[in-house]
Computed example of a mutant assay.
Amino acid sequence: MSLFVAPQTFGQDSFFPIWGDEAEKRGYTLPKPYGFSLSYMDMSNPITVNSINLTGHPVLEALDVDAKQADFSGSNITLRGDVWIFPFLNVYGILGYTQGTSKAKINSVSCDSSGFGILDSNRYLCSLIDRLGDNLPDNTMFELDMDGGTYGVGTTLAGGVGNWFALVDMNYTYTSISAIDGNIKTFVAAPRVGHRWEYDGGRELRVFVGAMYQDVQQYLSGDLKSLGLPSALDKIIDELAPDGKFEVSQSSDEKWNGVVGFQYAFNRDWEVLAEAGFGPRETLFFAASRRF
């Protein structure tokens, strides 16, 4: 999330932002150049399951699992450090931790027995699975826990006329999953427009609306037993392939959602921000910032 224009003018005593003196001579007000913020985000997002591959046994490798949609819910807490390089350009780094869960309903399971010989016992097991795979219990799901460290970089382009402002915030983050082998790669671009009100003592309120584009790519792998399958299926896996593995590729289903929020500056040093996202992807975002 970006930081907008600050409420008071100051004599520049730092190398950054470059061209800061020139901007102030033209009547622009600038924020202090350096900042740290602590933020929390809660998110719920539909996910498309692109592929599910199973290994560890010939029958597993012949399976086709129909589970096209998943629901991701999670949260993250991040620490961000930033600097205004130019009056209109901010760059920042992100370090944090993400907790999330992806749940997908398994609609059916089919098995291609054509690759097994007529006398191969795997052929009959595969045929049996194929016959039973359309009658799975309604609660047959696979669940993935996706907790891990997150880090990334980003930039903000900002400008304004009078008390109106506009900005575009872009960042790329990488989350390394700790419980299973995998990662989450996320690119976010968020344009916003808003209005600001100044008050005595350097206080300032900014209200904004906008949109968020989010492209999420998830690559996950691990033991079949870590999928959170029903106990009956776990028993079958224990007998069939105790060392069975899975590979899952998922991506964000809906890339755009709307956002609305506000930012309140207590003075030139401290400010808080709250934002809500609405649409297919729902988000809540809170941040507290300190500038130097």
Rank of each mutant, 00 (worst) to 15 (best):
L132I: 07
N53T: 13
D181C: 03
G194Q: 13
G194F: 04
Y213S: 12
T9A: 14
K105W: 03
L63P: 09
D112G: 06
G149N: 08
F165I: 11
N45F: 07
P230R: 07
N53D: 15
D120C: 03
L220V: 11
S249M: 14
R196M: 15
F246R: 10
F16Y: 04
G201Y: 13
Y219H: 12
S110V: 06
P7C: 10
T101W: 04
T48L: 15
F88N: 15
D200H: 08
V248T: 14
A166I: 03
G93Q: 02
I184R: 02
D134C: 03
E198F: 15
M146P: 01
L125F: 00
D223T: 03
K105I: 07
E254I: 06
G222L: 12
T156Y: 03
D71C: 04
D134S: 13
G222M: 07
R290H: 09
S73Y: 05
F88D: 10
L273G: 08
A23I: 02
V260S: 06
S176H: 00
E61S: 15
K105N: 09
L89M: 12
E271N: 13
L38S: 08
N163E: 08
L136W: 06
L3D: 08
V65T: 04
H195T: 12
T150E: 02
D13E: 10
G279F: 10
I177V: 13
N171K: 12
G35T: 00
Y97L: 04
E143F: 00
D134Q: 11
P31C: 02
V259L: 14
A241K: 09
G20W: 00
G117N: 06
E143M: 09
P191L: 07
D21Y: 06
I106K: 00
K105E: 10
A158M: 08
I180L: 13
G201D: 09
